[in-house]
Design a protein around this nucleic acid. Structure first.
Length: 237
DNA sequence: CGTTTGCATGGCTGG
DNA sequence: CAGCCATGCAAACGT
């Protein structure tokens, strides 16, 4: 029922392949390829240290970041009354990523992939996995609000936006991004991770990191195992 | 009956 | 005090 992960060609695919995914969903206007994060391709090599220093501008959502959202997708106004979206879509989007979600891990697999390919991977954000996130049975990942709003496409409460995500091993996955209506706002969820979780076997306390691959603009997911001294919850008995 | 999906509640943190 | 987010649960489905 679910397509198995496909190995990507060892090299690059600069041009959109036949089955290339444009993270755009049916709701996202084909105006342009949806890009995750920065619009201007900063030539940021995968340098954990360097990235850390200039993370502020790297994730510069506070700059002129149009984010991944469509120019001004506001079809949500249909029935979302409590949609407290900020009207500042053409201006500065003050979506500051919480320090906790600032990418700071080093991913060996990603480095490997980075070397083998000609792509550049820009760390976007990370999150320490909770028990719920890690649970393979759930196959869903709760995304920090600001991260989701900053780097993922705009989605309404009724939509399930298919998101093509590549893992650090070169596999392609089809995830789904959606919002859970909540009494006190909403929650951002990435679904369809079951297979991925089964394969990667992450645990609560591990950290999942999202990157943007350039120049393709694809989302890349990686996992950093929890280490001693990490501040995170682990369910290890 | 086992799973899956979506939601509501409560704890906790930040402002 | 407001809001984010972790988790538990019930309805809806599938086998």
């Amino acid at each position: 029922m679910f397509q198995p992960p496909r190995r990507l060609p060892p090299s690059r695919n600069p041009a959109m392949g036949p089955s290339e995914v444009r993270l755009s969903a049916d709701s996202i206007p084909p105006s342009s390829t949806v890009t995750y994060g920065l619009p201007n391709k900063t030539t940021v090599q995968f340098a954990p240290g360097a990235a850390l220093e200039k993370k502020a501008s790297l994730h510069g959502i506070g700059e002129d970041e149009p984010s991944v959202n469509s120019p001004d997708e506001n079809d949500t106004s249909s029935n979302s009354d409590k949609d407290t979206e900020k009207p500042e879509r053409s201006t500065i989007r003050k979506a500051y990523i919480h320090a906790r979600n600032m990418p700071k891990r080093n991913d060996e697999e990603l480095e490997q992939l980075s070397k083998e390919s000609k792509s550049v991977f820009i760390p976007l954000f990370e999150k320490a996995l909770t028990a719920s996130d890690a649970e393979p049975k759930n196959g869903r990942l709760i995304l920090p609000k600001r991260c989701a709003e900053a780097y993922l496409p705009k989605v309404t409460a009724q939509q399930r936006v298919p998101i093509k995500v590549q893992d650090t091993r070169g596999n392609d996955w089809q995830f789904y991004y959606r919002i859970w209506a909540n009494s006190n706002g909403r929650m951002y969820v990435l679904e369809g991770l079951k297979e991925y979780v089964n394969m990667i076997q992450w645990e609560a306390g591990d950290t999942v990191v999202f990157y943007r691959r350039e120049p393709e603009g694809n989302l890349v997911i990686g996992v950093s195992r929890a280490q001693a001294g990490e501040s995170g919850q682990k369910s290890s008995a």
